[in-house]
Simulated assay, not measured.
Amino acid sequence: MKALMWRRPAGRLIVVAAIAACSPLDQDKVAARVNGEKILAEEVDLALQYKGVAKHDPTARQRLVEKLVIEELLAQQFLRGTPGSALVEKSAVSAARREILARSYIETLVGRVPRPTAEQMSAYYRDNPNMFARRRIFTLRQLDVSAAPSRHAELRRRVGGAESLDALADWLRRENIRFVRTDLERGSDELEGNLVAQLDGLKKAEVGVLDTSSGLRVIQLVRTRPAPIDEKTASPSIEQRLWREMRVAAVEAEVSRLSGMAAISIPEGAPRGAMQALVPDPDPPLARRITGVAPPSVKAPGG
């Protein structure tokens, strides 16, 4: 019998996970047992792969097995002492299975997307002059205002009549409207295209208002200066940016293809047609977890 054991100072948790009474074949398949429940070697391999660690790294493997043993102990205690835990367990297993398998498929899918060619990178440089050839640095002052929608119109009027951003901030304090003030400097390649277009419409020291998910953003343009980037200098960032966009596009295309062949219905509403294409939910999509890039805005099915 082999045992995996580690101890902590007196008064702390002492955990002993035994791999016992296993045949040689079982030894290859079972990483540990906790009160008779198996932790499979396949689980360890999958977790290591997801973390980007070689599965034959003994130190990383042992550390992960110890972590899984503690998790299993806590899970067993939850199941023993929590009413309705069986339903929670079933739902958790179902959700974890769906997410893990979907993520694994996306990783396989994006792994097949080739890096952009030199021609594609040159075209990207030419098609996005504000990011490169006509790149600028914007110095901004902004207030992120958490105001109720009923006060948005009033706030917009105040912005139009305010002597300065400081005067507007004073008014917000008097009205007990929460806001966060930020001074920042960003290149046009770091800003969303629609924001760059709006900033282009502002004069120096002029103030504009943008809608955000949590309220309104008041922006004052302090100054702007040119900071172009030539194609050779931009090539490494273009390659990474374009490759991410290509991988997101590949995921969206595959989801659309699969949903076009599937019969999909939403319990809260009317059944959707089998040909209605779906795209990943942007908050947060699996595509973003894998590639680091958010897909374009999403329309509701059938919308």
Rank of each mutant, 00 (worst) to 15 (best):
E154I: 00
E175W: 00
R134L: 08
R135V: 05
S214L: 09
V207Q: 06
E192M: 09
E192I: 02
L199H: 07
D211M: 07
R178T: 15
A153R: 13
A162V: 00
R135H: 03
N194I: 09
R225S: 14
E154Q: 04
D189M: 02
F132P: 04
D166M: 03
G215K: 00
T224A: 15
A167Q: 08
L221E: 01
G201N: 08
G208M: 14
E154R: 02
L184A: 13
A162F: 01
E190D: 02
L210Q: 15
D166V: 01
A197S: 14
R186Q: 13
L195H: 07
R158T: 11
A148M: 10
G187K: 14
L195R: 12
A162G: 01
S213P: 00
A169Q: 09
S188P: 03
N194V: 10
T233H: 14
N176I: 08
A147Q: 05
A169I: 01
D183C: 06
G193Q: 10
Q198P: 09
R186W: 04
R223D: 15
V209H: 12
V145W: 08
G208Y: 04
R178L: 11
E163I: 09
V222C: 09
F138D: 09
R178I: 14
D230F: 11
Q220T: 12
V180H: 12
A227S: 10
P149T: 08
N176P: 00
T182Q: 12
A162N: 03
A205I: 03
T182M: 13
R158G: 03
V209Y: 11
V218Q: 03
L210N: 13
L155F: 03
R174W: 00
R223T: 14
S188K: 03
R151S: 12
R151C: 06
E206S: 11
D200H: 04
R135A: 12
Q220R: 15
T233E: 14
V145T: 03
E190T: 02
S150L: 02
V145D: 05
V145K: 03
K203H: 07
L216G: 05
T212W: 07
L168T: 01
K203F: 06
D166F: 06
R141Q: 15
P226E: 12
R181D: 11
S150W: 00
N176E: 11
S146I: 13
A153H: 10
L155M: 04
D166T: 02
R156W: 05
Q142V: 03
R136L: 07
G161C: 11
D200A: 09
D230Y: 11
K203R: 08
